[in-house]
Structures are given as structure tokens and as C-alpha cells.
């Protein structure tokens, strides 16, 4: 099950903990992968580790014209494009009363608008070939909200809404569009939290620990697979039970 041989996958944010784990997992199931992110050296290092079937496609998602071009660039490098994982994301946390408009704009642009541009650019080929898997890494806070993250939560809720709409539009073409909503996963993004914050978070997670990037990657493998062909417009929560929706 979950064999991805012959499939080509573009993963954004592949320099991060979750993106790297997703790229490794898809590759491990036989997919050819194109690794995208801002830091070319980190991408090269990961591609070197993966060996064959790994390509590097650096891109700054803040540059929306570059995002438009990314799927084509990845497809040319890999010889096709079947799976897109929109994983890159940024946080600019702060209480909303103190949130500068720039903090709002940047998070919406990189997390939500880049997902729109990336998915749109990838769709042409996917609808034509009558196969596609678009997977967006959203967040539990897009559903629950979180103080200090009005911008981030809004961007992630937006991704979920866009996913549902697009899923309805292209389901007849054998293209599925789904979100994964990680809870608290041990990565650089959550590493920035202090001990008190971590303790407060752990007290709300029935599983009693933060998740690992591999937990999220396993969900991506499933949604990318042939076996998940009848699952679309959904948000798969990977959060140790901290929110049951």
C-alpha cells in the first residue's frame, strides 16, 4: 500500500522539520521529489542524502511570481508533477492589539496567497493528466484559534476554506485537495517556545507529548497515495488528541 513509484512530488518548505520529513517519506515510498525552500544549501544537503530521484528547486514564497513559475520548473526537472505539498509557512506572532499590518500581510501572503498561486499553477497539468494530489499543511490553530496568532490562524483557516472549494471544483478530474492540520510538532517553529509555554501546551495534549515531523509525513503519504483517491476536501488532524473536530 501507499506505493508512490513513478509519481513526482513538489514539496515547499523542505528545509523545515515537517517539510523535510514529508519529502523523505514521499521519497521513501518511491516518489521522485523536488525540494523547494529558501536555503539552497540545506536543500542540496537533503537531496544529497536522498540520492536518486531528488531535485532541488529553490524559491522564496514571498516572491509570488517565482511561486507561479515553481510547479513548471519542478515538473521539468522531474519529468512530471503529480503531487504538490504546500508546506512552507511563517509565523509573526503577537497580540492583535499590537499587531502591525505588515505582520498580518506577510503571514497571509506567504501562507495563504502562495498556496493559492502554487495550487493554481499546478492545476493545469493535473486536470489534463487526470491525476493530482494537492496537500496543504495547515494547522490546528486554523480551526481552534490561538491567542497571539490572529494572522497565522487566519491564514491557516483560509487554506482550509480554499482547499474545500478547490476540491469541489476538480474532484471530477481525479485531483484531490486536502489539508493536514498538525498540532504541536517538535520543530524549530515550536522550539522557539519557552518551557512554561511548552508545559501549558503539553497539559492540553491527551497523548502527553508533542508530535514528531514523521507523524505529519505519514499523513502526507496517505493523502498522496492512490488509496486516498476518494478522500478530498478534508482536513486530517494530526495532533495527539489536543483538538477533536
Amino acid at each position: 500500500m501507499f506505493d508512490l513509484s513513478g509519481k513526482c512530488a513538489l514539496v515547499t518548505g523542505a528545509t523545515g522539520g515537517i517539510g523535510g520529513a514529508i519529502a523523505r517519506a514521499l521519497h521513501g515510498q518511491g516518489a521522485t521529489v523536488a525540494l523547494s525552500g529558501r536555503q539552497a544549501e540545506k536543500l542540496e544537503a537533503l537531496a544529497g542524502e536522498l540520492g536518486e530521484r531528488a531535485h532541488v528547486a529553490p524559491c522564496d514564497l514571498g516572491d509570488l511570481d517565482a511561486v507561479d513559475a515553481l510547479p513548471k520548473q519542478a515538473a521539468e526537472a522531474m519529468g512530471g508533477l503529480h503531487i504538490v505539498v504546500s508546506n512552507a509557512g511563517v509565523t509573526r506572532d503577537g497580540l492583535m492589539l499590537m499587531m502591525k499590518p505588515e505582520m498580518w500581510d506577510e503571514v497571509i501572503r506567504v501562507n495563504l496567497t502562495a498556496y493559492f498561486r502554487l495550487a493554481k499553477a499546478a492545476l493545469r497539468g493535473m486536470t489534463r493528466q487526470r491525476f493530482g494530489r494537492i496537500i496543504a499543511v495547515a494547522s490546528v490553530v486554523g480551526v481552534t484559534g490561538n491567542p497571539g496568532q490572529a494572522n497565522y490562524a487566519a491564514s491557516k483557516a483560509g487554506m482550509i476554506g480554499m482547499t474545500k472549494s478547490l476540491a469541489a471544483e476538480v474532484a471530477s478530474r481525479n485531483v484531490t485537495v486536502n489539508c493536514i492540520a498538525p498540532g504541536f510538532i517538535a520543530t524549530a517553529m515550536t522550539g522557539a517556545l519557552n518551557d512554561q509555554q511548552k508545559e501549558a501546551i503539553l497539559s492540553k495534549i491527551p497523548a502527553g507529548e508533542m508530535g514528531a515531523p514523521e507523524d505529519v509525513a505519514a499523513a502526507a503519504v496517505y493523502l498522496a497515495s492512490e488509496e486516498a483517491r476518494y478522500v478530498t476536501g478534508q482536513t486530517l488532524h494530526v495532533n495527539g488528541g489536543m483538538a477533536m473536530i
Binding site: R124, T127, R128, E169, V170, S172, R173
Partner: peptide
């Protein structure tokens, strides 16, 4: 045709 067919035809 549906609306998506038209988009695909145009492409």
C-alpha cells in the same frame, strides 16, 4: 460541457 471543461478547452 461543465465550466471546468471550458477552462480546459481554452487551455
Amino acid at each position: 460541457a461543465d465550466s471546468l471543461d471550458i477552462v480546459e478547452l481554452v487551455m
